[in-house]
Amino acid sequence: MPYKILDKKELAMNEVWYKVHAPHVAKKVEPGQFVIVRAFENGERIPLTPVEWDREEGWITLITFIRGKTTMRMANELKPGDEILNIAGPLGNPAPMKKYGRVLAIGMITGIVEVFPIAKAWQEFGNDVTTLHVSPNPMVILEEKFEKAVSRHIVEGFDLQPGWGMNEIAGELVKRAVAKVRELLESEHFDMVLTVGPAGAQKAVFNVVKEFGIPMHADLHPIMVDATGMCGACRVTIGGEVKFACIDGPGFDAYKVDWDELIHRIGFYAPMERLAMEHYMKALQGGEQ
């Protein structure tokens, strides 16, 4: 069933915002849940997170980081007034709503998108929430919204150096995240930590948090296909047991996650994803017939 794009903006470098009419999701979605988007007839099903929504007006907003073929095609080909073929959801479990006390919610690069609804709801629920966005400076987003929604919002930005590829960015991201989290945990008391972002960076942050013994909740991003629990693509090992992130998660106790397995599984299709991207770029360069 097609869903109309009401508005679209480029928020920052490679970060695209869509406002979409999807009343079935808007009516039900809770912080921590996600949707599956299939944007094109021959397209993939990809998980994305509703950032804001209006139950009455029936819209949700999505923010995508242009990462591979699907997110790039969406950015290039979809414009306001167009339709997204499928938006299924809401999927996954809502984040637990509890009074933790002082919370540190960390979003790395586009991970900050998923932190937003959860951090906002936790603050409204009576927690004292500090949010931390670790990101390359040109990709910093949602600053004003965070400043309104939580007690304190910190941006740990870094500049991109000429010639950097994904590996260098990931390296710098981990370095910055680890240092900043250590600094915060050494100087202040926190009762709960949340992370969303690339799995490698989540693992590095977890290793710091673990030293302080603070409870930690991690939203995981394994590869998903149906996201209704029928394929097992998203399986993760949690406390020695196999779980399906789409229906048992996506949030889990960070202390129980088998991080190395997750990192391996997420990277499995990288060569094919590159191929898909090259195929697309070639088609673009070939021009439209």
Binding site: F40, N42, G43, R45, M272, E273, A276
Partner: peptide
């Protein structure tokens, strides 16, 4: 997802 038509179709299979 028609992965047998990859990369015409976006979903990969190994």
């Amino acid at each position: 997802m028609k992965a047998y038509l990859f990369p015409e179709y976006d979903t990969p299979v190994y």
